[in-house]
Design a protein around this nucleic acid. Sequence first.
DNA 1: CACTCGTGGTC
DNA 2: TGACCAAGAGT
Length: 367
Amino acid sequence: MTSKQFSQAQRQRLRRSLLEWYGQQGRSLPWREEPTPYRIWISEVMLQQTQVKTVLPYFERWMQQFPDVQCLAQADLQTVLKAWEGLGYYARARNLHRSAQEICDRHHGKFPQTYDEVLALPGIGRSTAGAILSAAFGQAEPLLDGNVKRVLARLVALPVPPSKALAHLWDLSSQVLDPQNPRDFNQAIMDLGATCCTPKNPACLLCPWRDDCQAYQTHTQSDFPMTESRSPLPHKQIGVAVIWNDHQQILIDRRPEEGLLGGLWEFPGGKLEAGESYPDCIRREIQEELAIEVEVGEHLITVSHAYSHFKVSLHVYHCRHLSGEPQALESQEIRWVTLEELDEFPFPKANSKIIAALREAQGTKSP
DNA sequence: CACTCGTGGTC
DNA sequence: TGACCAAGAGT
């Protein structure tokens, strides 16, 4: 299985035309204007599976709150998660925090500059390592993100989905990379994918690579990259309890550190079993998770939410604490809080919809 | 290597 | 409007 080889002349043409395009069409971004290793690192991790537009406000707030690696290393994890709240893939925030501590402990607070050291940091894989080393230090390391995969798949009319040709795509990314200007080249090829060679309706007439693009030359750009096969997402039904005590406080719990939504807070509850009503489900789950008895009251809201690999509907009910001292049997920590105090804790998006509904109910009760 | 891990934009 | 998908990494 031999990979496609670009001729030296073609590589030079691709590099020259892309860099010229970048000079005219490249985006002005805060981490490009002031490309310190710390800012490049934070931006690259925030940009994993996340669009620039979404990242921008988080990036600015982050730099205000954690202006350098020492500051991040010394922050407490709950504060870091609160700053990340809403961005998703929360392991990224936990890994940034761990990496910051490693950089301070093992690298004297200075971001490492060798490929192996950067790759060894938690949350940095092959592509992010290439992005950081080229952008922060001008090193000629290739990268392979979603944009580059799409651009290259069209350039060579890749006859299989990208996931089936990762080695080939890495080789192509290395071949086209400009060893004279890897910093701008890598930024340029990502910009090309993000703003020109887009998933839908690519602007081929404005593309610097149209003369070399095998997909465009055969008018099949919309057929590439070939789609990945996917199985349908399962849909889970969850009973959720907003448990009130006699002091107008609500019981919340902090999820286990690893796994889905690790370290975030939530309202307790669990999966509906066959033949069970939601009140039955909630009483059972609350007994299993917290070892207390509750009375299930009126239905508050049902929230539907789609995650990467499944969908959920959260059926939320007001509950009243009857007996027993709550225990953190399946969580890290539990706490009684007022409606106002909920803002201090990082919650997943699906839970913030519940909080909004609670606030709305509160507002209508006492005008 | 296939699966887990979030959310918002887009059509 | 539901399905697809984005500056991927860890296991």
